[in-house]
């Protein structure tokens, strides 16, 4: 490589690295404003101020879903298997919502420690398989390599 080309390449790499760091840092700062979710453990640790609009994500605890038929309200516990948060929600649930499923709820904490959701989204996990494979896995009791969300 000719010296002036090498110099040019050096300058470009330097500029790219500099700008890249700047963009990376600003994106990192921005990431606080991107809709990320808090885990129930973070909620329990007091990282969330009541009334602040946030998202909480976790698994729907088995046997915790209570439907109120009259006012279409649903209440359930979302858990990360360390801590629980009770969620109240009035509205339409996504089809994938079921016990043991990962969800992300959007809303705010009320002062009594329950979460008032204005929207509930289902979080899908990265495991795809047919009904037959799932049944065979369940029969064998083999759930190795599966995250908690895939276990039902």
């Amino acid at each position: 490589m000719k010296p002036h080309r090498r110099k040019k390449l050096g300058i470009i790499i330097f500029i790219a690295a500099g700008l890249g760091t700047a963009i990376g840092l600003s994106l990192f700062a921005l990431s606080n404003n991107i809709d990320l979710f808090f885990t129930p453990t973070q909620v329990a640790a007091g990282e969330v101020t009541p009334g602040q609009r946030i998202r909480v994500g976790g698994m729907v605890k088995e046997g915790s879903v209570e439907h109120d038929q009259d006012i279409l309200e649903v209440s359930f516990i979302t858990t990360d298997y360390n801590h629980d948060v009770r969620v109240h929600y009035a509205g339409i649930l996504p089809d994938l919502f079921r016990e043991g499923q990962g969800i992300v709820a959007e809303g705010s904490m009320s002062p009594d420690g329950t979460f008032i959701a204005s929207r509930v989204l289902a979080k899908h996990d990265e495991n795809y398989m047919s009904v037959e494979v799932k049944a065979a896995l369940d029969a064998a009791g083999n759930t190795t390599g599966m995250p908690p969300g895939a276990m039902r």
Binding site: L36, F37, G57, E126, M129, V133, A136
Partner: peptide, 20 residues
């Protein structure tokens, strides 16, 4: 980050496993 989008899947060679 904690995202709504799920992580990348791990493919399995085993026909009876997640992502067969």
């Amino acid at each position: 980050w904690n995202t709504l989008h799920q992580p990348a899947s791990n493919f399995s060679i085993d026909p009876v496993a997640p992502n067969p």
